[in-house]
Amino acid sequence: MQVQISHDLKERWDNVCLGVLIYSANVEGSSPQLVEFFQRTIDQLNNQYSMPEIADIPHIRSTRNAYKALGKSPSDYRNAAEAMLRRIVKSNGLYHINNVIDINNLMSVTTGYSIGSYDTEQLSELVELRRAPDGENYQGIGKEAVNIEHLPTLYDRLSAFGNPTSDSRRAMIQTGNRTIMTVIYSFDGKSDLQEVIDRYCELLIQYCCVEEINTIFVL
């Protein structure tokens, strides 16, 4: 996969970068060990934060500021890390999806980065992060048309398929043997990304038996 960031987006928000992991995994229900780790982490976060504190978590705050600079309301279109943490602090928990997505969501809520995971077989080889144009929308996962205009959004040669708020159905992760591209969306530079990627790799190896992971920084 070749991943890049558009010049227009960089001009509007220079501190954007991506951490990308590409790997193959057998996507299935989470093991009892992962479910236990997942729930323990959710309980800790529920006790750690109050609702007003969530928007001030550094990586969430930078994402919100980038949304404002791009012309999108960060309160009306919350990034995924913020939205999930708000569920957790309200004691609503998080759904278990599968092993890959459960790790995706755990890494997101523990770091404040919004993270998306995508089935590479549904994508063309060139992917670009762009500011979505006026009126743009796509069919979301578990949703009808999602308004994505002005959001920082991933496109391939076919269409838009993912952003830090809500991903499309086209490249969603389904069960079975899949080659996956996970994208960590950063709007405050790459200083923390290597540590986050290292931890992400540890969890994929431990809970998904992933053997080889290619990582890329896109600046």
Results as ranks from 00 to 15, higher is better:
D43E: 14
L45M: 13
N214D: 14
R169P: 00
P74K: 03
L106N: 00
C17S: 13
M84Q: 10
S75K: 09
D119N: 10
G140S: 07
Y49C: 07
A80R: 09
K10R: 15
F217M: 12
I42Y: 03
N92K: 13
Q44D: 15
S30G: 13
V210T: 02
L106I: 09
V3T: 14
M1Q: 04
S31M: 06
A80M: 13
C201L: 05
R64A: 08
E125Q: 11
F161W: 08
L106A: 02
I101G: 00
L85G: 02
T165C: 15
Q4T: 15
M107Q: 06
F38Q: 01
A83G: 12
A25N: 03
T175P: 03
F161L: 10
E211Q: 14
A81P: 04
T215E: 13
T215F: 09
E195Y: 09
T41G: 03
D14V: 09
P58Y: 09
A55M: 12
I213F: 07
V16E: 05
S91F: 11
K72G: 01
E121Q: 11
W13M: 05
G19C: 08
Q48W: 00
A25M: 07
V196F: 04
K72C: 10
A160P: 04
Q206I: 05
A160S: 12
R131C: 10
N163S: 08
G93R: 01
N15Y: 13
T215A: 08
Q2P: 00
F187R: 02
C17W: 06
N104Y: 02
N177T: 14
V89G: 02
D167N: 14
N105S: 14
E149Q: 12
M1N: 11
N147Q: 10
P133T: 04
Y185F: 15
S159T: 09
S6N: 05
R131W: 03
S6H: 11
Q122S: 11
Y155M: 06
